[in-house]
């Protein structure tokens, strides 16, 4: 049984092809560029090519993310909280707290012993708590996005940012550059600032190990280090955690399909 999961996020569209709810056959991602539907089509094509599976062989498609209603051929859609939590628990079964830091929003969910979401908290109103903040810093500091994290790791004395607004922080950061603060310290300050925002969300739902980081920022070594330092405990990361929401929706699609096949007379969706 093959299920597909598509996460139509604000910054990136991510996709996963899953066999029997367990085995990842392919992952793919593309920038949304404001037209997530178009990116989603390309992601689907890429997944099929990688796994060598024709579209007709995909038994069930489940979407998530802010653009989850944009794909007419979907069989099911689930909220970002549910999918991202499911993906995190699949990767790290002992997860009790999921932190999902994305381009446009960050969210955190506490997870029960049975893998259910207990409590959640989200910031989608303010860029200072999202990957967008790092993107902006990358632009005006003229450091390519993928170099931000590795460069930050060299920091000896991170320069903390006092502004809690991404726009006001810009002035502060530029002043720091003018004052000759080392770039690595400025960059680590950016990640710490983002981590502190995530930390206050995490405290709201309750911090309990294991903590798993997922979403767009999980690939950023600067973010991972900053979050571990801020929370003061180990934080699970994995390459596939980048696809956690897409993975989770593929898993949830699989469970739904199993149920549907058990009760063929049930036409409810």
């Amino acid at each position: 049984m093959i299920t597909g999961g598509l996460d139509l996020g604000a910054g990136t569209v991510k996709g996963v092809l899953l066999e029997d709810g367990r085995r990842i056959l392919a992952t793919a991602s593309l920038p949304s560029r404001g037209i997530p539907v178009q990116a989603a089509r390309q992601v689907v094509d890429e997944l099929g090519e990688t796994a060598n599976i024709a579209p007709a062989e995909v038994d069930y498609l489940c979407t998530t993310g802010f653009g989850r209603y944009m794909i007419p051929e979907r069989n099911l859609q689930v909220s970002d909280f549910t999918s991202s939590a499911r993906g995190a628990v699949f990767l790290f079964p002992k997860t009790h707290l999921v932190v999902d830091v994305g381009t446009q929003a960050s969210r955190t969910m506490s997870i029960s012993e049975t893998g259910k979401v207990l409590k959640f908290k989200m910031n989608e109103k303010c860029a200072a708590g999202a990957g967008r903040f790092v993107e902006r810093c990358s632009k005006y500091l003229q450091v390519p996005l993928e170099e931000m994290g590795p460069k930050a790791l060299a920091s000896q004395h991170p320069k903390l940012i006092s502004s809690v607004c991404a726009v006001l922080a810009e002035t502060e950061i530029i002043n720091n550059v003018a004052e000759g603060v080392p770039l690595s310290d400025i960059l680590m300050g950016v990640f710490l600032s983002l981590s502190q925002r995530a930390y206050s969300l995490m405290r709201y739902v309750g911090i309990q190990p294991e903590v798993t980081l997922v979403g767009g920022l999980v690939r950023d070594v600067g973010m991972v280090k900053a979050l571990r330092d801020t929370v003061g405990m180990e934080v699970n990361v994995a390459p596939d955690a980048y696809y956690a929401a897409a993975l989770g929706s593929a898993i949830l699609g699989h469970s739904r399909l199993l149920k549907l096949r058990e009760t063929p007379s049930d036409t409810g969706g």
Partner: peptide, 16 residues
Amino acid sequence: STCTVFAESEVTSYVS
């Protein structure tokens, strides 16, 4: 959007 950063993108998307 309340946030200046998000408003900036919102504005750009209206232009496009």
